[in-house]
Nucleic acid binder design. Structure first.
Lengths: 144, 144, 144, 144
DNA sequence: GTGGTCTAGACCACG
DNA sequence: GTGGTCTAGACCACC
């Protein structure tokens, strides 16, 4: 399992693990029934304490993303792929909603927000031919 | 000053105050030179610990958004409106960038993201005629 | 908060805490909005490690039984009483179903099972006038 | 031998085997002197580790439910049927006592509990005309 | 004072 | 080998 954590990030390490496992499942890198890295393995790989991994795995079990096979290890649950794909959408939607609501609350006009979105979209998805804004907008200054 | 605080929210209370004051200034609800609620007043109004208000005001002073006027109280600094407007843009831009980066990392295609953006934009800015996507997009289902 | 744990019991200590808190809420000893013993307090009271209490409290938070008020402590969530009362019923129902199913699977006749039930019922509810069943009780709804 | 094991269940696999063998003997499906599946056979049939079967069989030998017949395999011991029938009663009694005690501890009234019992009884023993209790049965000995 | 995160290490049951 | 529980103690942010 190829995952990476940043001990100095704003999210707790265990949360970073939880999210990355979910992303891996959502993206299909882990399928239902697959075994996941053992606690000790992952702890060594990430150079963190096993308890931190245990905590992440436990949360995933509580959400029924992982299932414990006693004495054997943890496997991806049957409903996990669908759950993870759904959660991913919901999370993005919620966070988009938050930031847009804040944008409005702070007095920003829709025009400004649209420009900001196109700008960031172009950074995040450079390969896509600017899909949300196929109008020939000249890259004007984005000011207050 | 009409601000509202959620003690169960994900952000610290003092941070919520800081942001809302900045938003109020950016939106023009508070102008340079205006006086701001006293610590005791605001603490009572929001039913929170005065120390929390003090901490928020102190941070605003450190950023030169507020200025102490001896014997009178705190007033909005002369450069505050411009500062707040600039910060607001930077913040929205940064958060948009974050959420879009995560969307990509989680394996979402640009098409999905575009739909989600238009969806949330329509919620946050219901009056604007859907500005970031002036193409005649059919309102298809947004699924996985 | 009057709770008691048995470190030698079959259930983990943290689980015992979780259940007893739920029982206390279901029974009305703790109402929505009430603050709960602090982690350190309870840990000292029960002579166990604070981490064990934290784990129990965290699980209760995950189930939205408790809510965290940053810097203040944990309070009983608004929906907790109803949730706990419902869970209590569901748990008893499930365990009854299990043991009865096992009784049948092991070849026990309904007559035997009936006798065992009356016997244990008389022990658990000695004050109730005999077993709860030979009266022609109208089959009302089984609710909270 | 028709037994079934759930690797994700709450009981250890070896315990599940032990119980099911005992149940089969108590119910008469296995009689004294009958041979039992070999370790390898059962392990293959259940798709589990032979060590797990060994552990289950060993426990059954320790309880003198099974006896080793040199060069032949394991057979059901002479006293096994009676032992299993007795244990079955004791187990059901104990578990009933537990769940009823918990019901009381959680603040449930005897009326609720009575209803729950009748409800689950009707599910577990659908053929018996309602619950076994409203007949004035003389409290005979509870034997096999 | 409060909860929250992380580390370190012991001990156990299970397969 | 696997996960699970518990202890001990450090450090942090928040109120």
């Amino acid at each position: 399992m190829l995952l990476h954590v940043d001990p100095a990030g704003d999210l707790p390490i265990y949360e970073q693990i939880v999210r990355q496992v979910k992303f891996a499942i959502a993206a299909g890198a882990l399928a239902a029934g697959d075994m996941i890295s053992s606690v000790r393995e992952l702890a060594k790989e990430l150079a963190i304490n096993p308890n931190t991994v245990i905590r992440a795995y436990r949360q995933l079990q509580d959400e029924e993303i992982l299932q414990s096979r006693r004495g054997t290890g943890l496997v991806v649950g049957p409903a996990a792929p669908e759950t993870c794909r759904r959660q991913r959408i919901d999370m993005i939607r919620a966070r988009l909603g938050q930031v847009l609501a804040e944008a409005r609350q702070s007095g920003l006009h829709d025009g400004h927000v649209g420009r900001l979105i196109r700008e960031q979209l172009a950074i995040a998805f450079p390969d896509a031919e600017d899909d949300a804004s196929q109008t020939p907008t000249q890259p004007e200054e984005i000011s207050s």
